[in-house]
Amino acid sequence: MTQPIELSPRFPDAAPFLGRFLPRAKAAFWGLSASFCDLHAFLRHLFDTQWYGYLHATLDGQDAFVLIFEGRAVAAASGQNTADAALADLLNLFLAGAPLGAYVLERDIAHALSGVGSRAWKFNLTEDFTGLHVDATGASFYVSGAVLARLPVRLPYEGAFPAPLRPNTLILPKSLAGWAHQNYVLTLRGKDSLNPITTIHQQFRQQFGHGATAVLRAIAEGLTPAEYSLRSDAALHELEAVMSELVKGGFVRARS
């Protein structure tokens, strides 16, 4: 039987649970700054390369942590927030001048961490449990019921952070990605693009592909890009490019 890997915490005194349970790992990128790095382009690079790891930004005593799984932000925490709002906190810190570090994790370690939120749950470990289990002896990283690694970070009580089978992608809030939360409607040209009997239907599919067609259908159903992103697990930066083309091509318009 393989012995669990012994990990060391990078931020053992961090207030957010996610930060506290992040292990020391090799820095893939260090000291990234808004003065020379476009964070959205960087996140797109992580997505394109199916990257696993975590991001950390700190400025004036404020910290934000974001877990990346398959190149997608799936968990985040800061001093005040978790999830989507904490992802926004990291972006705001970065834009305010905080240096950004990106640290590589193995896929299974990242998966086990993906369920860490604002509280630990009472949970009976099952034979196929994946996630983090913590008690007075430390934290154990489980994947499919097996202990993959241990971390000497404790809680005064026993609790678990179950990981989802497929972690959901975090979405930036409206204040930072207003276009994604905007309601759109199809124009006549957009409606024709979804009608198989029209000439423009085939032209649209050839030019934009299946992905853009799926976005058009979602808009026809009344979904915002953010809602479609959550439902389809599509990366928001990819949808931004698609929406830009659809608006520019006269297929959709913002609902007034």
Rank of each mutant, 00 (worst) to 15 (best):
106 E>H: 14
161 F>D: 05
144 S>C: 05
116 V>I: 15
105 L>A: 10
176 L>H: 06
148 L>K: 15
121 W>C: 02
126 T>W: 06
127 E>G: 15
189 R>D: 09
158 E>K: 11
116 V>G: 05
106 E>L: 12
160 A>S: 15
182 Q>I: 04
186 L>I: 01
190 G>N: 02
150 R>W: 00
159 G>M: 02
132 L>A: 09
159 G>E: 02
105 L>Y: 11
167 P>C: 06
189 R>P: 01
121 W>Y: 12
118 S>F: 05
135 D>A: 06
101 G>N: 12
129 F>D: 03
145 G>D: 10
182 Q>P: 03
135 D>W: 05
112 A>P: 12
162 P>N: 07
161 F>R: 03
119 R>I: 00
111 H>G: 02
184 Y>N: 05
114 S>C: 09
120 A>L: 14
143 V>Q: 13
191 K>C: 06
140 S>W: 08
142 Y>G: 02
146 A>F: 11
149 A>G: 11
129 F>T: 03
149 A>W: 09
194 L>V: 07
136 A>K: 14
191 K>W: 06
129 F>P: 02
194 L>W: 06
141 F>V: 06
114 S>K: 08
170 L>D: 04
185 V>T: 11
106 E>Y: 08
142 Y>K: 03
183 N>Y: 09
167 P>T: 06
107 R>C: 12
139 A>G: 04
171 I>M: 14
118 S>V: 00
183 N>D: 10
131 G>I: 08
181 H>K: 04
188 L>C: 00
126 T>C: 04
172 L>P: 01
192 D>V: 01
142 Y>D: 02
185 V>E: 14
129 F>A: 04
152 P>I: 09
153 V>C: 09
140 S>I: 00
175 S>P: 00
125 L>F: 09
185 V>F: 03
